[in-house]
Design a protein around this nucleic acid. Structure first.
Length: 447
DNA sequence: CTCACTTTAA
């Protein structure tokens, strides 16, 4: 289904035209771009069930404004909204509209439907109105796991770890059976808090529940959870046990690679990656990025370049901007500016700049920093200009640029950079002069 | 006649 510019209401007859006019006058149809199916339906204005299914279709396909419009028209026509239409409207509603529906539901009795309550909780939770969400949850007559999951998702999103975990415990009292979504959310809490004791507890819970032992998503979440809690050995034991179940799963192996990388165990990343190849598992771009990142962080240039070359030659994939960025970063740290320069230019030639502007800026920024360290003003100057192409208002790049000149005693040029910063309204005293976007992307702590 | 709530992993 696609939104197209509205056409005239075709052959709809006088009634449809009159209705259309009325809707325009009441500002329910704000502009011309209305979904054609909606216009078509104006020919059967009194048919509530048709409006309901159209509303449901809009909501399902994410046509937010068309869905809200249908709901508004439905209401303005005085057609009764049943639990179906309320649910559909709530999947696209703002918190304000949710509150209106909520208030109306208190009298109309619609809140006795778990579906309506579930949609209401989810709507509140998505807008981080967790107080409202939990109120609905507490007051509804019959709860189900879906409602609990929605509320839990709201706690995770708003980083309310304690309340989230409390809800997980409460589900047992309420005899709500946790499913994969529940556990996934709980593991996210343990990871992000991070809360090792809760993580261990959740792991123990998973082991008792055989339904979850072969769930690949949960196994990866467990590995990541332990890694983020700094318990690498536990991460590895989960990985080891699961290898028998999902042995060929490159995602699981990548979880383990990043578990090591996040904890600074770069030699283990390379070792595990090579073991993965021996097991006959074909790496994908994310696995390759993980091992490249480890080489970059540990200064393992030879292996890093080998892995980079293997992307195309062995695995038949075109390296992405993030792979280039990683290698350039590695070469800069190793002081090999010429090669870094070559790679950076190669990266710019690629059509697929999947890393986006930030990545490009940080790559050129890394090159700039490396040039400052080694006093290579020529390349550094170009790197600075390239970095500013992608991120013109980055104060750190300006500072690094002027430091580059300072290292060579070029005082006039420093003045020019300072002037440029003044014009752009940038402050020169910034704490961090460069951003290691690969570390951020992979979530590695600085090592 | 049809239609409704969470959709998680590197």
């Amino acid at each position: 289904m696609q939104i197209q510019p509205a056409t005239r209401i075709s052959a709809g007859g006088a009634a449809a035209k009159a209705l259309h006019g009325r809707l325009l006058r009441t500002h329910l149809l704000p502009h011309a771009a209305v979904h054609p199916k909606l216009l078509l339906l104006l020919r059967h204005p009194a048919d509530a069930s048709r409006w309901n299914s159209l509303l449901a279709a809009f909501a399902r396909h994410g046509f937010r404004s068309s869905a809200l419009l249908s709901f508004a028209i439905l209401n303005s026509l005085g057609l009764p909204s049943d639990s179906y239409s309320l649910c559909s409207a709530l999947t696209v509603a703002s918190p304000d509209l949710a509150r209106q529906i909520h208030a109306r539901g208190l009298t109309s009795g619609c809140l006795s439907s778990v579906f309506v309550c579930g949609a209401l909780i989810d709507c509140y939770a998505r807008s981080l109105a967790v107080e409202d969400a939990s109120q609905v949850f507490d007051e509804m007559p019959h709860r189900n796991t879906v409602c609990a999951n929605s509320l839990l998702g709201g706690y995770v999103e708003s980083r309310r770890w304690t309340e989230g975990f409390r809800l997980f415990r409460r589900m047992r009292e309420l005899s709500l059976e946790p499913d994969g979504f529940t556990v996934s959310a709980v593991l996210q809490i343990c990871s992000e808090a991070p809360a090792a004791p809760l993580g261990l507890q959740t792991h123990a819970y998973l082991l008792r529940r055989s339904a979850f032992t072969e769930n690949a998503v949960l196994i990866c979440s467990l590995v990541e959870m332990y890694a983020r809690c700094g318990l690498v050995a536990k991460a590895h034991s989960v990985f080891d046990m699961a290898a028998h179940v999902t042995r060929k799963d490159v995602v699981l192996w990548t979880s383990m690679l990043n578990a090591y990388g996040r904890n600074g165990k770069f030699a283990e990343v390379v070792e595990t990656y090579e073991k993965m190849l021996l097991e006959g598992i074909e790496p994908d771009k994310i696995a390759l990025l993980a091992v490249l990142s480890a080489c970059s962080h540990s200064g393992n240039v030879i292996k890093g370049l080998n892995f980079f070359n293997s992307i195309l030659r062995v695995h038949g994939m075109v390296p992405g901007a993030e792979h280039y960025g990683c290698v350039i970063d590695m070469l800069c740290k190793a002081g090999n500016l010429e090669m870094a320069w070559k790679f950076a230019n190669e990266m710019m030639m690629m059509e697929n700049k999947s890393g986006g502007g930030n990545l490009n800026a940080s790559v050129w920024g890394a090159l700039l920093s490396a040039c400052r360290n080694s006093g290579n003003v020529e390349i550094g100057k170009i790197a600075a200009k390239m970095a500013l192409e992608f991120d013109p208002y980055n104060a750190g790049i300006h500072v690094e640029w002027s430091n580059l000149y300072a290292s060579a005693g070029l005082w006039n040029e420093i003045g020019e950079v300072r002037e440029l910063m003044k014009v752009k309204g940038l402050k020169k005293d910034v704490g961090h002069s460069q951003v290691d976007s690969f570390s951020l992307r992979n979530g590695y702590d600085s090592v």
